[in-house]
Amino acid sequence: MNEKLSAIKEQTLAKIEQAQDASVINDIKVAILGKKGELTQVLKSMKDVAPEDRPKVGQMVNEVRQNIEEKLDEKLKAINRAARAEKMKRETIDVTLPGVKKIDGHRHPNQTALEDLERVFIGMGYEIVSGPEVEYDKYNFELLNIPANHPAKDEQDTFYITKDILLRTQTSSVQARIMEQGKLPIRILSPGRVFRSDEVDATHSPSFHQVEGLVIDKNITMADLKGTLAQWAKEFFGPNTKTKFRPHHFPFTEPSAEVDITCFKCGGKGCRVCKGSGWIEILGCGMVHPHVLEMCGIDPEEYSGFAFGIGLERITLLKYEIDDMRLLYENDMRFLQQW
């Protein structure tokens, strides 16, 4: 019995070893383990074994069976693996062929610059608000300390609709509207279209965008204005950006300043972008004029604030090194697709 079992085992394992494909494995399985298989036959002949030897023989048969099953399984896996490897070899593709793209749209660079800018100020607690583009003289000029016949009105070459209604020349018009609402503190950013009667050329457009910032609270200082804009410049133009504040004049802020940043192209060494100076003029700002606060119903003895105005197109042109402002309004796909 023992020898017979050993013989079946040896022969079967040898056959398994030699098997080359899955069908042979299946055949062996049937021939040995099937209903009429050799090992099954051995089990059937158990009745001829002495009763006291049966458990031992039974155990031996099971061991052989288990051993053969394991080997069959192992071999089948190996055969399948080899077959799949063979198949995959035939499936090789040229991975250097181009990918399949859908038609992709592009964000306008001016919009991208605006969103980058907004993100920084939203992080600093500013709310984005908007105001009308067709505006009353009152909000665009009068409440900003620019009364009738003020020379600043000439400087800004205003488009008029009627005597009192105009196309706003500056997003500063939103300042008075927000202050008038009387909710304090104020921390807003207001982007939008503005209009000035400039003929179209590489650096001028009768329609462009500004971004106005306004903060009103108790104890707001010029140091806060400097800190805020310095932080914005670092986040927007890069961590090494330095800011320079120069005295300037705007009717609705006092003190007023213009802000230069170190050229982001050359880092301040001087290049074509900064015209060799190392600095780029970037925005105007100042402390909200006490008279403006008063006119808008805010007590300048209690509150102070700062305001700044950024020319969006200017920043877009500088940041992306676009040399002609007209490109922004032409909407040529070959231009837009670069962003």
Partner: peptide, 9 residues
């Protein structure tokens, strides 16, 4: 596939 345009008012 639509790209952002900017036109005059």
């Amino acid at each position: 596939g639509f790209s952002g345009a900017m036109c005059y008012s």
